[in-house]
């Protein structure tokens, strides 16, 4: 584990907050900062970031997606690493920016160099920073949903499980079809609400079928979808981003839970 001691030698990590975390659940951002600092990083949060551009990109709006890609690229270019608490946004930055910016020789090289520095939070901690355990406690059984982009674009699968196992008092109970989509799909959830609903119903049934009363995942979009469905169905399951538990910052009300 290559932790550098002096502040100057600590890698400088730019936190890509993601628009959903910024807007809906800042506590995930602070949990990410804490985990990154514990892993020996200096963390910066550029103000010139907004959204990774996926809503435009996946709606076919290439010009806006491209502009947002350049905006993000410029805001983060000086960091050693760019880390996001989301597999979906990190996948966009890492795999889709080079595609969006690849047709222009002026941006193609920049996008590739940028992509090399981009990581999803939990896989960054484990694969790049060599973190093997965290200092946190969470009593009870949890289950973990593998969000699609993190799993299939970035190979995030073992890393969150490895760190969760080190959380005191926590047991991980796998649900059936943990790797199957929750039906969120960004704008898909509002463009095809009935189909999206049918998919998330299967997911919440799998979640509720287990003994775990806490659901974790690495993407707030999926978490909001599943939390929203679970509460609508009256299923009493606490829903959190995995970073909150790993950082020992699970005192806030869970996603969709009322403020105490």
């Amino acid at each position: 584990m290559a932790k550098n001691k002096t502040p100057e030698n600590k890698p400088h990590v730019g936190l890509f907050v993601t628009c959903l975390v910024d807007l809906i659940r800042p506590s995930i951002g602070f949990a990410s900062v804490k985990l990154l600092q514990q892993a020996g990083c200096r963390v910066g949060v550029p103000q010139a970031q907004t959204c990774c551009g996926q809503p435009a990109y996946n709606s076919g709006d290439r010009p806006d997606a491209r502009a947002l890609a350049l905006q993000t690229l410029s805001a983060f270019e000086d960091f050693d690493y760019v880390v996001a608490p989301s597999g979906s946004c990190a996948g966009m930055l890492k795999h889709h920016y080079p595609e969006l910016l690849g047709d222009d020789p002026g941006t193609a090289g920049r996008a590739r160099a940028f992509a090399d520095k981009v990581h999803e939070l939990v896989s960054f901690l484990v694969d790049i920073r060599g973190v093997t355990k965290v200092r946190a406690r969470h009593d009870g059984a949890v289950t973990y949903h593998d969000s699609c982009a993190g799993l299939r674009e970035l190979g995030v699968k073992a890393q969150p499980r490895q760190l969760l196992e080190s959380v005191e008092g926590l047991t991980l109970q796998e649900m059936e079809d943990a790797e199957v989509c929750c039906g969120f799909g960004g704008t898909f959830s509002v463009k095809y609400p009935a189909v999206s609903n049918a998919i998330v119903e299967k997911k919440t049934a799998n979640i509720a079928a287990g003994d775990a009363r806490c659901l974790l995942a690495g993407d707030l979009g999926c978490l909001m979808n599943m939390a929203g469905k679970l509460s609508r169905e009256g299923k009493d399951i606490e829903v959190r981003h995995v970073a909150e538990v790993l950082a020992g910052m699970d005192d806030d009300p869970a996603i969709g839970e009322k403020q105490s």
């Binding site: 609903n197 998330v200 969709g256």
Partner: peptide
């Protein structure tokens, strides 16, 4: 009060089938 919305103007596609978790408060930024 609830920590979530059961319905919200312009978000009917979402709230017809599921609740929308409310923001915590101020933005991260």
């Amino acid at each position: 009060r609830r920590g979530r919305f059961r319905s919200l103007p312009l978000a009917g596609g979402w709230t017809r089938h599921r609740d929308l978790p409310a923001p915590q408060g101020k933005t991260f930024q």
